[in-house]
Design a protein around this nucleic acid. Structure first.
Lengths: 139, 139
DNA sequence: GTGTTTGCAAACTTTTTGCAAACAC
DNA sequence: GTGTTTGCAAAAAGTTTGCAAACAC
């Protein structure tokens, strides 16, 4: 019944790669990073290990439009996603920490986690938006 | 500059199909529903119209693992997703409605919306889990 | 008539999977 | 030795897109 999990070179590389980044990388990002250390590792192995590491609670992930993003942080916090460039940043936790039990009693679901994602424009894309506006005015 | 949007048979069918369901259907669900009314409508048209209707603010969507789910409700509320069967239910809004400005001031993003998703087991899957447990015990 | 929308099929993106060989314990 | 993990390549799942014909206004 117990799942015995082996310690492999590849697994360690994937974990290290996630821990080394604070920009909420995609699976593909991690694949690219890990490839620089082990030219033979396969995409399938990276995906499998990302999922296993998440199940083990060593890393976490955020579901956003465009795919799954990984996070070395496993504590409870929220995220902001740029709807223009896809950048993700950490955001403070919504103050109310009885959210889960509230949602549970309201729906009958047995809640085990939650995720709050804010959508908006990152600072860089805000600047780009202004620049494009100006370009139009001056055209 | 203004986008002129035409009223087509297909667009109306897609909108009607979303409004007719309260179970947060996938694009494929809507495609299937609409197909019963118009055997010729194409998948591409359904996807295009779901996106256009969402942009217009007539419907909304929730990003969850496994894809995008549509919602006839456009008011601010949260969702619970079953991690076993994918069922989605509505949940009450987190009480704090200054969340956006809090996240904004913390990250520098210009926030336009947010989405809170709870993960857990729906009532039916909770029952199934108990049943499987029992089966093991008696084996 | 003009410009938008459709149907179709192909392409794309992200992720999963079957299998035999390689590896960890 | 036993059972897990890997690499590979194929396939799956979800969604987007190019184009000519059809349609809305």
């Amino acid at each position: 019944m117990e799942v015995r999990r082996r310690h492999t070179h590849q697994r360690q590389l994937v974990l290290d790669a996630v821990l080394a980044r604070s920009d909420h990388p995609t699976a593909e990002d991690i694949f690219t990073d890990v490839r620089t250390k082990d030219a033979k590792i396969s995409r399938g192995t990276v995906y499998r290990n990302l999922n296993l590491l998440e199940e083990s609670g060593l890393i976490s992930s955020v579901h956003v439009p465009g795919g799954n993003r990984f996070d070395w942080r496993t504590d409870d916090h929220s995220h902001v996603v740029c709807t223009s460039c896809g950048a993700i940043a950490d955001a403070p936790l919504p103050s109310d920490n009885q959210l889960d039990s509230l949602a549970s009693s309201h729906t009958g679901y047995k809640i085990s986690s939650h995720s709050t994602v804010f959508y908006g424009l990152c600072p860089a894309c805000q600047r780009d938006a202004v620049r494009n506006q100006d370009a139009h005015k001056h055209a």
